[in-house]
Design a binder for these strands. Structure first.
Length: 600
RNA sequence: GGCCCCGUAGCUCAACGGAUAGAGCGUCCCCCUCCUAAGGGGAAGGUUGCAGGUUCAAGUCCUGCCGGGGUCGCCA
């Protein structure tokens, strides 16, 4: 048995998906009960139930689920919370799923569920396989996730790595939550930086021909351009030598850019990231797309010729007023208007980016997500303003900023300098830590918090390494499955999902089942907030609960998964373990991490 | 100076506006004739930077401060 988890169905219907989430099931029950109360005059009509929630209680002693309905509705209904809660409790008790409903605290209604619910949940996980937890939040709508978008001027470094991992995990999460996801990379191949790349590569070309390269100030000094120079020699011989820039710049630029992109694509592949679409900035030039996007804004009276005020409080030395073409981004929430043209009439970086986002809007996406490095924070408001204007407010743009990664080795921080060419590349990181570890570790932090990445710690095999800890839980499940098979117990998913689970009644086992019940809810919360790190934290908690149950078997042999000579009982317990494995595999798949079957 | 992000246990960090703010590390005490102890249980540790406000309810939302980081018109 492996992590090859059968998918229950190729396509689950909307109704089936809804039934997978125990919390939304019970919320539906609460809402239905509230509506009944309205119909029978126990509650006034016209109440808004949107704020009514059903969630896990902080303390398990409070029950299995809690609803805030009475507290939320007390004021608009002009009633005592207690009165609402009592009436609601009485109605809920009529449902066979509800075993208890107690009013507590400031008006919480704590619910206890019929124990068979948890047994049914375990069965449900095994029946649905990796589809368990799949949500329909996106309802098939189209979302574009743009990420990485590293300049094609060199290999990807650690900062890009985090953005790549985050974007990829977010894309997988949104797909799991029912969105139609497109992953996209925007190649910044249209600006001055690719000319610098060309000139830098040209020096390496001269070097390849036996001349002394002149890596002047402002050029890229990195060794990674040496192969580019050699490839140029291969292709052009010495025909570009001693020619003016006007003869070779374009060709060398295209050549070098293509080589860099090939390298970047390879880096992404090493990391397990695949893009659906690569868009090119350069390709926007000369097509009229930029002009058309600007014209669209101009028609809305959002483009004008004007002079910007100097930054408040900190006027640059060389500040001089100049007339520029400006985008009235302040009309859509920005602080100041932003230039789209330089004084020589050429476009600023912003202009093609406006056109690019216009293009995404025109392609019919229902939502856009951009993933930027934290140093682009100042760019967020103007980009949102542009998309808001170009889509008439129809298409929401969420921009996630990825904070920087601090590298450590033996407790010592790594110093990186792009100018000195001594930066740590994605390849360095993946070669040392492995793609799975790199991905998991980079997802155990919120995107907007800085991340420490310690090469020694991430490879440590102990519980303060979350990657290992989660993998170990899965390996333990597989160990149980192996032992059971050796003992002649059938443990395939079909058998386990048909097993009699009535024996799963111990409080320690129910706790684990409850954790499994939270998975669909967790997926929805994570997807709604575009926060894949929640998946990593959930998996850690699930692993912790499982390790706990495992160790209870040391003291109480009746809690071991394999019960000698009792096939049926063993199968029930193993079903629970296998359900844990299914959810771990499912969660790791969202993070893009390969599950480990066995620790060696 | 403007804008953005961050500030939670000694350290590293969680917490969809919900109840007594949770984990790991570190410290201290326990648990392997038994499915992988690479694990588990327990103890100690907090005025969630400060001060107001909104709310039935604030670490979370709003305002103002303090501290750290990022960023700020012809770089992308």
């Amino acid at each position: 048995m492996t992590c090859q988890v059968a998918s229950g169905k190729a396509k689950a219907t909307r109704q089936e998906l809804d039934q997978m989430n125990l919390f939304s099931d019970i919320r539906d029950l609460v809402l239905a009960s509230l509506n009944d109360m309205v119909a029978q005059g126990q509650l006034p009509a016209g109440l808004d139930f949107a704020a009514v929630a059903v969630e896990p209680p902080r303390d398990a002693a409070h029950g299995d689920m809690a609803t805030n309905a009475a507290m939320v509705l007390a004021k608009p209904a002009a009633m005592q919370p207690r009165a609402i809660a009592d009436a609601l409790a009485a109605r809920l008790m009529a449902d066979p799923r509800i075993a208890g409903a107690d009013v507590a605290g400031p008006g919480f209604l704590n619910l206890r569920l019929n124990p068979v619910i948890w047994q049914g949940l375990v069965r449900s996980v095994l029946t649905q396989g990796i589809d368990y937890g799949r949500a329909n939040l996106g309802a098939g709508k189209k979302v574009n996730v743009e990420f990485v978008s590293a300049n094609p001027t060199g290999p990807m470094h650690v900062g890009h790595t985090r953005g790549a991992v985050f974007g990829d995990a977010l894309a997988r999460l949104l797909a799991f939550a029912g969105w139609n996801v497109t992953r996209e990379y925007y190649i910044n191949d249209g600006g001055a930086q690719v000319d610098v790349l060309a000139r830098s590569a040209y020096e390496r070309y001269r070097e390849a021909l036996g001349l002394e390269p002149e890596i002047r100030e402002g050029l890229y000094p990195g060794d990674y351009l040496i192969p580019v120079g050699e490839a140029l020699k291969e292709k052009y011989g010495d025909s570009l030598l001693d020619k003016g820039e006007q003869y070779w710049l374009k060709d060398v630029r295209d050549f070098a850019t293509e080589m860099m992109m090939a390298e970047i694509r390879n880096d992404l592949k090493v990391l397990g990231v695949e893009m659906d679409v690569y868009s090119s900035e350069k390709a926007l030039y000369g097509t009229g797309e930029i002009e058309a996007a600007i014209a669209t804004l101009r028609d809305m009276d959002l483009i004008y010729e004007g002079v910007l005020e100097p930054p408040k409080g900190k006027e640059p030395e060389d500040w001089e007023p100049r007339v520029q073409t400006l985008f009235r981004s302040t009309a859509h929430g920005d602080d100041v208007d932003r230039p789209v043209q330089k004084s020589d009439g050429s476009w600023t970086y912003f202009a093609p980016d406006i056109a690019y986002h216009h293009n995404k809007v025109k392609r019919g996406f229902d939502a856009l997500i951009d993933i930027f490095g934290a140093d682009h924070g100042g760019y967020v408001k103007r980009m949102k303003a542009a998309v808001s204007a170009l889509s008439n407010g129809r298409v929401p743009l969420d921009i996630k900023l990825i904070q920087l990664v601090k590298l450590y080795k033996n407790g010592e921080p790594f110093k990186m300098s792009k100018r000195a060419g001594t930066f740590v590349t994605l390849r360095d990181v993946v070669e040392q830590a492995g793609a799975d570890v790199t991905r998991f570790v980079m997802l155990t932090r919120k995107n907007d918090a800085a991340l420490d990445f310690d090469f020694d710690k991430v490879l440590e095999q102990s519980k303060d390494n979350p990657v290992f800890y989660v993998q170990y839980a899965n390996a333990r499940v597989n160990s149980v499955l192996r032992k059971a098979r050796d003992a002649g117990i059938a443990v395939d998913d079909a058998t386990l999902s048909a097993a009699d689970l009535a024996g799963l009644t111990h409080e320690a086992e129910i706790e684990v089942a409850k954790k499994l019940a939270e998975w669909p809810r967790l997926v929805e919360i994570a997807a709604r907030n575009n926060e894949p790190h929640r998946v990593a934290f959930y998996l850690y908690e699930l692993a912790s609960d499982f390790h706990g149950l495992w160790n209870r078997g040391n003291d109480d042999t009746s809690l071991r998964f394999i019960q000698d000579g009792q096939t049926a009982v063993s199968q029930a317990k193993i079903a629970l373990a296998r359900a844990v494995s299914v959810v771990i595999c499912s969660g790791l798949a969202i993070l893009g991490v390969t599950p480990v079957e066995e620790m060696r």
